[in-house]
């Protein structure tokens, strides 16, 4: 008897779990679905259910030079910030994980501080600082600010990866005659590539949709997409915004489809 009861209860348990998970996913994903549907809606207001099919909101988005310019700015900003953050983050992670030195703990918490800092506070601080330095509203200013926020995430993902790489591998490489740099490029780098790529993608996405800091630091000539959307929403409510959201959604999905899962650390 008992033999049969156990699988049965576990089956019921598994079904319940699946149903609950499904419900949670639906709850989270339903708004996204509604937004996508509204992007193709003929009505000039964000109404649901849709009244007819059209692509005019997408056309409106790509015709609006301010949106296109903002999209370009955000893309370039995201790629630049992610690249800079990776170039800084990998050696930092290497130093924090592999070397014992005085002040290591302090440096470790210093690198993580931006994660704990409220974005608004950081934004205000940078605003004051940048206006002194006269780089307010400049591209370089935005890159620096974003790098500050995303570098901890790169360090985190790369460190997690580095802890999993046996130090003896690097020693073996040294022992076989490779110098420190050669060892880094031949052994360490290939083995932390997945952490590095996922860190960089994460960094790109975070920079790409960062609003608060960009709102404070971008100027009239340097507007990112999230800031542009935010400003647009103040005065308009037509489904152009839904079309933009759909485009962003597609970009994100494409990134996750074209980057093999192993690079994302799954």
């Amino acid at each position: 008897m008992t033999r049969y009861r156990k699988p049965l209860t576990s089956l019921v348990g598994a079904c319940t779990t699946s149903l609950v998970l499904l419900a949670i996913y639906l709850f989270l994903l339903a708004p996204l679905l509604v937004v996508v549907l509204m992007a193709f809606n003929t009505s000039s207001y964000m109404v649901f259910p849709p009244e007819g099919f059209t692509l005019k909101w997408f056309v409106a988005f790509f015709r609006d030079s301010m949106f296109v310019e903002a999209l370009r700015t955000s893309a370039v900003l995201g790629v630049t910030s992610a690249a800079v953050a990776t170039v800084i983050g990998v050696p930092a992670a290497l130093a924090l994980v592999r070397y014992r030195f005085r002040g290591r703990e302090f440096l470790n918490s210093l690198f993580l501080a931006p994660i704990l800092f409220p974005g608004v506070v950081l934004a205000i601080a940078l605003l004051v600082y940048y206006s002194r330095l006269k780089i307010l509203g400049s591209f370089i200013g935005l890159v620096l600010a974003h790098v500050l926020v995303i570098v901890p995430y790169v360090i985190r993902t790369v460190s997690a990866n580095l802890y999993g790489v046996d130090e003896a591998l690097e020693e073996a490489s040294l022992n076989l005659g490779a110098g420190r740099w050669r060892t880094f490029f031949e052994i360490t780098l290939p083995l932390i590539r997945s952490g590095m790529v996922s860190g960089a993608i994460f960094a790109f996405i975070m920079s790409f949709d960062e609003l608060v800091i960009a709102l404070f630091l971008s100027g009239a000539r340097m507007t990112t997409l999230p800031v542009r959307i935010f400003n647009f929403l103040e005065y308009n409510s037509d489904p152009t915004i839904a079309a933009i959201s759909t485009v962003l959604l597609c970009v994100t999905l494409l990134v996750s489809v074209f980057v093999p899962p192993r690079y994302l650390g799954f």
Partner: peptide, 20 residues
């Protein structure tokens, strides 16, 4: 001398084979 200039072979307890 640094390790890479010593020309000594080493077999590690964990083998330390390069996995890639």
């Amino acid at each position: 001398l640094p390790p890479n200039k010593r020309n000594l072979g080493m077999v590690f307890q964990s083998y330390a084979l390069f996995p890639h």
